[in-house]
Design a protein around this nucleic acid. Sequence first.
DNA 1: GGGAGATCATAAGCATGTCTATGATCGACA
DNA 2: TGTCGATCATAGACATGCTTATGATCTCCC
Lengths: 155, 155
Amino acid sequence: MTFPSSPVGFLLHDAARLMRRRFEQRAAALGFTRAQWQVLLHLSRNEGIHQAGLADILEVEPISLVRILDKLQARGLVERRQDAGDRRCWRLHLTADAHPSLALLQDIGEDTRAEALSGFSDAERDTLVGTLSRLKSNLVDACTKPAIDDEAQHG
Amino acid sequence: MTFPSSPVGFLLHDAARLMRRRFEQRAAALGFTRAQWQVLLHLSRNEGIHQAGLADILEVEPISLVRILDKLQARGLVERRQDAGDRRCWRLHLTADAHPSLALLQDIGEDTRAEALSGFSDAERDTLVGTLSRLKSNLVDACTKPAIDDEAQHG
DNA sequence: GGGAGATCATAAGCATGTCTATGATCGACA
DNA sequence: TGTCGATCATAGACATGCTTATGATCTCCC
């Protein structure tokens, strides 16, 4: 098949979608999604962060986080506490209830990762992680630039 | 940061999402999304395929394709023609109008890919493509298996 | 020939992600 | 001090992806 140069974008998207699908085939029994897991995990490592800060870590728009946090809060896994000095901010905290669920989700994540990386050597896995990190970093930079169609910015 | 083993899934998902975001920053001016581009592209290489076949190529559920095709058809870029021998099927065809748009989207795709792969050697890019292909293949296989939590299927 | 089960397209409902927009609050500067 | 622009959280609208369900049609096998 003579595909236009290398279909990196399609491959990336397909692999990510399939990995999400596989994760959620398992996590559905617990009532969690991949995105909820990611939020819980980063929250566990950044207790007390506010929503804009978490959005920045996750490289998503703040609005994308709101509904996820709404659901987690409604389930009693996340608390929004008013910031003492800035009434615009909520400080985010995991509740005690969140930790057992997070542990289960980590196990499911491990299983899914093992399936995805089946047949990979440690070196191959590390190379992949390094390559994806660079690619992500390139895109984070690119997304802040104007989306012109390849002209007028060569200065 | 001591992240749980290698966060391949998160990296993959983040990179794919950022690449989609960047692509759509450019393609929004034309009124197209990444998914619509992917459908048009695969259709151009598989004229006359039916929806289930295209869904299979794209590794998505058939229902995921319906609304995308609806929109492309409403814009006059795709035709659904009744199959001669099977009244359940639609055969899918690009219209003449689709080809100029597809060419523009290909250019945008090239620009986006170039940004994402900035600083990568050809060999690195090829390694990434190969690795992602294997990963995708692993996941396609895995997704057909029952989603049990890692037990009872060792036979 | 006729019925059972597979297959095709599609609907309903939900989750996530984006854009743009809005109201509240903060901070900085005149 | 008072106003103006930045920032925080969030609403609305849209596109995609999934699971589950449904109606039409086909196929196979008795």
